[in-house]
Structure formats: structure tokens, C-alpha cells
Amino acid sequence: MAAPESGDGNNGAARMVTLISSDNTRFEVEAAAASLSQTLQLTILDGGGGGGDGIPLPNVDSATLSKVLEYCIKHAPAAANGGAPNATAVDRAELERFDNEFVNIDQSVLYSLIMAAHNLEIEGLQSLVAKKVADMIKGKSPMEIRRTLGFPDPTPEEQAEMNAHMLEYGWAYE
């Protein structure tokens, strides 16, 4: 979990920063939440993102960014406690419930989320989404994996390559 410095969190209860998505939408959000992103944290610690400036995020569109921020806002209080060692069971359960709901979305959104989480270096979100995608692959046959992930049925040429591979790594397909 990317925990902001606790000193930073105390320094003005609700310091806000502005983030600008690739399609020029502005998002105003608490610095503590934005700081879940390792990338943003550095800028914010330097005093960036305040006032009219805003931090441009050319790699993230507004739909994805709003989703990312939803995650950050929810997780910020726990992260502020240094990964929430003293969070109550209630809080943890609530976060888990939130996480499960959160990734219950279309695959295309899921992929843009993982990309954004990667660019912004939001560790918790990266692993959450990665795990979700992994769950879609887990325990499936080759054809099921292709279909689940939206790959078209293989051409004869591809099929031949697949077969060769499956022969070489037979143990993985037993």
C-alpha cells in the first residue's frame, strides 16, 4: 500500500489538488487520496497540483480517472494509518466489500484501470485489478481462456502454433 507520509496528511486537514485527465476534465481531490499514487505523491509533496495549476495526466481519460479516484478516496483513510494496522474488522470488511464491487466491471474498463494504476503507481489498485483478471483465467482450458479474454477463435496457423506449444509444455495442460 502506498502510504503517504503521515506528516503530510496532518499538514492542513483537507488540502486539495487538481488533476487533469487526457480529455481535459479537471478533478479536484484531497491530496491524501491522490497521494496513494506514488507518481503523484512526489509532485504533491513538492507543492504541485494546488490552486489553478492542476496536474495533467495525459495517459488517463476522465472515465478511468474518476474510477481511479473513487478507489483512492475510499482507501485513503486506511492508507493514512500506515496500511491500517489498527483498522477495525468492520473497516477492513467494508474495504473488502468495496473492492469486490469495484472490480465488478466491463473488461475494457478493467484493462484501462490496470493501465492507469500502473502509470500512476497505485500499488493496491494494481494488484486488485490484476487479481480480478487472473480470476478470469484461473482453471480454464485454452479455448475457455481465449473466449473469456475476448480473443477470436484461432486461425489454422495459430492453431498449429498452439498445438506445438501445448506439446512442449504438456504438463501445464494436463
Binding site: 490496470i114 483465467i137 482453471g139 480454464k140 509444455y169 501445464a172
Partner: peptide
Amino acid sequence: LILLCLYIKDAVRTSV
């Protein structure tokens, strides 16, 4: 990162 969440067999299977 995605494959890290999988069993090695499942990870290899994504080769298809």
C-alpha cells in the same frame, strides 16, 4: 502482474 496471481500452470496456459 496478472500472471503473478496465477498458478504456474494457468500462467503457462495463457501462451495459447
